[in-house]
């Protein structure tokens, strides 16, 4: 298992492939192919600028990688260049969705449809942490600075303005539901999102919302029919 010698990384500007320097070119090529094939239709129809970093490739090798990507991925590959830009120091912290990886366990809590649940009554205030190995229901508000961590689903019957982490030991199927969903930060398994910086939500009416993870992105939607 030397999968980790080739890493695909999506960025704002396209795709970056990170190659381990000590690896031979043939094995790299093989691994890229395996990765692309295992991604299935993921790249299909996309048009990509591809960069690579780590191992230096010759012009000829570049061409081979280019052709491989072009033929196997189903995406239109517009260019393949070496990424010479140094990654900005310490930048990979919070801004991206995936960068700060939270360590996940191999066996995670699975009882999100039917499982052990904790009920907490009262307001979770700043500095308070309610955590539970299972589902968590808070009957009350969660204020900014308050924190909920549950290995299953989190339901807040009230306003959720603090930090919430559902599926905390790795279950990406976990959901977060609140009558008023305005968390400072919302995490499901190892996916992290935060509220936008400039947008002041001035809604006065409560809309119950549900957050879930799909393709490593958090989606938030109403779950009641709109009136």
């Amino acid at each position: 298992m030397d999968e980790a010698n080739v890493t695909f990384k999506g960025s704002l500007h396209g795709l970056t492939i990170i190659l381990k320097e000590e690896d031979g070119f043939e094995s790299i090529l093989e691994q890229i192919e395996r990765k692309v094939v295992s991604a299935g239709k993921f790249f299909k129809g996309a048009s990509l600028h591809v960069k690579y970093r780590g191992k230096k490739l010759s012009k000829d090798q570049e061409d081979r990688v280019f052709n491989l990507l072009a033929s196997k991925s189903g995406a239109r590959i517009k260019s393949l260049t070496e990424d010479t830009e140094e990654p900005p120091e310490a930048q990979n912290n919070i801004s991206g969705q995936t960068s700060p990886r939270i360590r996940m366990k191999d066996y995670y809590f699975n009882g999100i449809n039917e499982g052990v649940t904790k009920f907490y009554r009262g307001t979770v205030r700043s500095g308070q942490l309610v955590d539970f190995k299972g589902n968590l229901v808070v009957i009350g508000d969660v204020n900014p600075g308050g924190e909920l961590i549950a290995s299953g689903n989190v339901i807040v019957v009230g306003s959720l303005r603090g930090i919430v982490h559902a599926g905390a030991d790795g279950n990406k199927d976990a959901i977060v539901v609140a009558l008023n969903l305005q968390p400072t930060q919302l995490r499901i398994a190892d996916v992290i999102t935060r509220s936008p910086d400039d947008e002041k939500d001035s809604r006065n009416f409560l809309v119950p919302e549900l957050a879930y993870v799909k393709d490593n992105m958090v989606y938030i939607e109403r779950f009641l029919p709109q009136r």
């Binding site: 801004s95 400072t184 930060q185």
Partner: peptide, 9 residues
């Protein structure tokens, strides 16, 4: 600093 929502660690 307006960075509250970025805290993980």
């Amino acid at each position: 600093m307006g960075l509250e929502n970025r805290i993980v660690y």
